[in-house]
Design a protein around this nucleic acid. Structure first.
Lengths: 124, 124
DNA sequence: TCGAACCCTCACATTGATGTGAAGGTCAAG
DNA sequence: CTTGACCTTCACATCAATGTGAGGGTTCGA
């Protein structure tokens, strides 16, 4: 598929798909005329990128964790330098922190909503 | 305490504490000379704000969910307009999405690290 | 009374993720 | 062969979060 279809299927502006490519998050083949071509796997990939961006991770970090997520677990050991492993461990922990923070606050919001709903139905 | 101490205790630049105040996320009393004064509760509050910012929520949203998080559950019903409730429900769901995404990816990173560590200790 | 260490406001700069549009090439259908 | 819907690159604009520093007031201890 070309960029327009990927854009539609992921709900992502073309502009951003080019940006993600520029940042090294996705790669695109090119047709002889220069058009970008993508295969189906890019849809999931873009969704994942958007989710992580939305969760506060910068592209720089996303680029580093994406290679860990390939389903056929192929580990490129040249990438597995000690620094890289330290970075990944650090990111893993930061993600855990984020999850904790989000969970705590989401639960509080949810509880608030429950209480309000209860009052409203009782009072009406 | 004044802004310097709050800054130290939260690891947050003064500049940002003033910014959060400007955005309506925290309030500060003022000494006669104009200096900001804070009490201990602001430490937790600032930490919470930073956590949420780090998790990708914009100040605009944080400002809306913070009132739900007061421990003595005091619900200001003037705030509880239908639009506000809809906003909160929407945010709650978005937070749930973020949690899911982060959890999935964190687990993948963790698993990757486990595999690499295993290979390294076995191979060395 | 002076200097250090605070505090204030104001304002401009930067960074990352985006929006937007110009100027132009490609291609299929009428 | 032209029109419309694609695509390209390039570049400037915006927005939120943050950095940085100027210019100036306050407080306290030597």
């Amino acid at each position: 598929m070309r960029i327009g279809e990927l854009s539609e299927r992921t709900g992502t502006p073309r502009r951003l798909l080019r940006y993600y490519e520029e940042q090294g998050l996705i790669v695109a083949d090119r047709l002889p005329n220069g058009y970008r071509v993508y295969d189906g796997s890019n849809v999931d990939r873009v969704m994942q990128i958007r989710g992580l961006l939305d969760a506060g991770l910068p592209t720089r970090i996303i680029k580093q964790i994406l290679p860990c997520l390939n389903k056929p677990r192929v580990i490129h050991f040249p990438d597995a330098t000690p620094e890289m492993l330290a970075t990944l461990e650090n990111e893993r922990d930061r993600m855990t922190d984020r999850i904790r923070c989000l969970t705590r606050n989401r639960d509080a919001v949810a509880e608030y909503l429950d209480v309000v709903r209860e009052k409203l139905t009782a009072g009406a």
